[in-house]
Write a protein that binds this DNA or RNA. Structure first.
Length: 342
DNA sequence: GGTAGACCTGGACGC
DNA sequence: GCGTCCAGGTCTACC
């Protein structure tokens, strides 16, 4: 990959740019090759959900690569992921990984890119909703860990999108660990379980979410959130939803969103954005309660896939306003992401 | 079961 | 530059 010249001023102003230049000009670390399912498309499948613009994720529009820092027991490591002409993924790290770390990296990347979701899953979705067959959309981007997905969801509740962007940036900068290339990881559950609520409020600006984030982290550390059970096909969606709403800071919207991040698409995550979508795109009117009822009826035919049908409708609306999502510059998207701003 | 108000931040707005 | 208002989902108290 070619080294792209960048000004020193940009490096000073933008630590992510520093990371990109470093990783593209000198990759002293491990390189992994991952063979994804045949229908996987890095640009389309990364740029499919808003979390791809939240730190520590960084989508490099020019190079069409995903960069971020992954957490390992000993030390974090930054990586850059690109897709080769043969469809395989190349993952370059900023330091050498031992065998255990390489195995962990594969698990984290597989979760993040939804690589367990194979072509059969895609076909099943497209049989129910043919609108996305041509584009191939079926996967939704997520985090390397369920914990990060849960915290990102909590930081997206009751705030405008720019605040969510800032909270995640500060969580990484204040509580994350620095990689060899200078970029920060997303803080682990263990780290946040030991972080003072005053730090979260004062430095990360998470507001009243401070205690809830610490409590959530403690639940993860103590093993009270069993991802294996939550992701198990034998566990009914109602059981998962019922458990999630017992977690601090998780209400009906957040639980519905976490369910899709677990690969369970049978429920909607209805928020003000959904209502806006229903009014402006679907043409519904009435009180919020009436509109919510219409929304549920509208997506009911999509059954087990209804969240994806709903989400890709919203995503198409955003792309209609702002262009293809793989061309969205993070700083631009940080301030103009919701339909209210588009 | 339904509803009202508090929680907290940051942007928009008026002065 | 300052003060005020508002949006956003969850939680708690109350009816």
């Amino acid at each position: 990959m070619a080294v792209r010249p960048q000004g020193l001023g940009m490096l000073i102003m933008n630590p992510v740019a520093l990371f990109i230049l470093y990783t593209e000009s000198a990759m002293p670390g491990s390189v992994l090759k991952i063979v994804p399912p045949s229908d996987f498309d890095l640009a389309r499948d990364v740029c499919s959900y808003g979390y791809f613009v939240l730190l520590p994720n960084y989508w490099d529009v020019k190079n069409q690569t995903l960069s971020r820092v992954l957490e390992f027991d000993q030390a974090p490591s930054a990586c850059v992921i690109d897709q080769r002409d043969d469809g395989s993924l190349r993952v370059r790290f900023d330091r050498r990984l031992d065998r255990g770390e390489q195995a962990s990296a594969r698990v984290q990347i597989s979760r993040m890119l939804n690589l367990d979701h194979d072509a059969d899953d895609t076909r099943a979705f497209h049989r129910v909703d043919k609108r996305w067959k041509k584009s191939g959309r079926a996967r939704l981007f997520r985090s390397p860990t369920l914990f990060e997905d849960v915290i990102k969801t909590v930081t997206s509740c009751n705030v405008a999108w720019p605040n969510t962007v800032n909270m995640n940036r500060r969580l990484c900068e204040v509580c994350g660990r620095k990689s060899a290339s200078g970029a920060y990881s997303f803080p682990s559950a263990r780290k946040l379980s030991r972080t003072r609520v005053g730090t979260l409020r004062g430095r990360c600006r998470v507001g009243y979410r401070d205690q809830r984030i610490v409590d959530l982290a403690k639940l993860f550390v103590k093993g009270h959130v069993d991802e294996r059970w939550l992701a198990d096909e034998g566990t009914h969606d109602d059981e998962v939803f019922g458990f999630l709403v017992t977690l601090p800071g998780i209400g009906p919207y957040a639980a519905g969103n976490i369910m899709q991040l677990l690969g369970r698409y049978s429920r909607l995550a209805i928020d003000t954005e959904t209502i806006r979508h229903a009014k402006t795109v679907l043409g519904y009117s009435g009180s919020d309660a009436q509109i919510t009822k219409k929304i549920r009826a509208h997506y009911e035919p999509f059954g087990e896939h209804k969240f994806r049908s709903y989400w890709f409708e919203i995503w198409r609306f955003y792309e209609g306003k702002a262009g293809p999502s793989h061309t969205w510059e993070r700083d631009q998207v940080s301030t103009t992401f919701t339909a209210a701003n588009l």
